Amino acid sequence: MRILHLLASPFYSGPAENVGLLALAQREAGHEVTVAVDRRRKDVPAEEPAVPRLRELGLLDEGGLELSVKSPPWGVLRDWSRLRARSVDVVHSHFSHDHFLARWGRPSGDTVVVRSLHAPRSLRSSLPAADGYTVPASSLLPRLLEQGKLAQVLPALVDPRFHPTEDREALRRELGLKGAPVVGMVSTFQPSRRHEVGVEAFALYRQQRPEARFVLVGDGQLLEPTRKLVASRGLSDAVVFAGYQQGEDFVRWLRALDEVWLLGLGNDWSARAAAQARACGVRVVAVEEGALPDLADVRVAEPTPSAVVHAAMSSQRAPVVHPTNASIAEDVLALYRKAAQARHDSRARG
């Protein structure tokens, strides 16, 4: 199959990493796969840019699509024309801009259009038509199935770099981490991630585990307010702000943890951080959002400090077996085939 993924983002973060790993797995299964991303926005100082990463992986599409929400109307029309002229079997779109472009710029012939919804806000009445859909969590699936749509869950894919460290204590020494247990949060500092709840929970947790350390990996708009909250609770000596980490550095920080607290999701409800943590042998304590319930060792019934501490103090471990990237890719390829068959049957009926 010739597969074109559309991802109107200049960042290799959020859903973009999942898209890249899916494209890689599809290519390894013998298909011709490229990923088109936002080529207009080039200044992305806060996050890893998508273009060099995808080029390094041999996945970057060079078909001339600008694919940007910042494009002027004539730029969108140019993308529409260029997409219409493409010769591909599947256009797999991922963000709202992509969805509308794919819907109206579908290449002629038997090209299948599949849409991935990465967060619940995309499930709305104005959802453009497609031949098939994916959602990041099973809780979102019924809304599409009830409408008679062909749909399935697209779980988080995990880079092979995520695996347990051979010597966690040595790694902690390298990172300057002292004390135990080491608990962490790995997410952007924004309201949906509930860092304030995490800090308040750690203050309670440390009353029972006085040698515990709290590692906060990431950056964002609420970073400085979180620093002030940590200081006001007298926790500065026990909390490490590791900053924004990516690539192998992020893997190292994650491997160093005993457990991770995932207290909210952003624009990717596949809960990739939970899958990555599990792959590293890190215990997952998580709220019941998106795909987190399927990946958590222990669930937090409600996002309050006391509920987080209650969950963290338990010894519960869930025997979750996460699907491999190859099996996830095969399931998505099967969705493409079903969509193509349904489209063919519909056209045959006339």
Rank of each mutant, 00 (worst) to 15 (best):
S116H: 15
L83F: 09
S93M: 09
S125G: 05
V113K: 00
V112P: 00
L101Q: 02
L65T: 05
R84V: 12
R55S: 14
H99M: 03
E47L: 15
D110T: 15
V76H: 13
V88K: 01
L54G: 02
G132F: 07
P52A: 10
P120V: 14
A46V: 12
T111P: 03
V51W: 00
L101S: 02
G75W: 06
V51C: 01
W80M: 07
W80V: 09
W80N: 00
S126C: 06
A130D: 05
S87D: 14
L127G: 03
P120L: 10
A102I: 09
V69R: 15
L77E: 06
E56M: 10
G105S: 14
D131N: 07
L77I: 14
W80R: 05
V69N: 11
D131V: 10
D79P: 04
P52S: 11
S125K: 14
D110Q: 12
A85T: 05
A85I: 08
S93K: 04
R103E: 00
P52K: 09
H97D: 05
S122V: 13
R82V: 11
D98Q: 05
A129R: 14
S126V: 15
P45M: 04
V90Q: 01
E62D: 11
S116M: 07
W74D: 13
S93D: 13
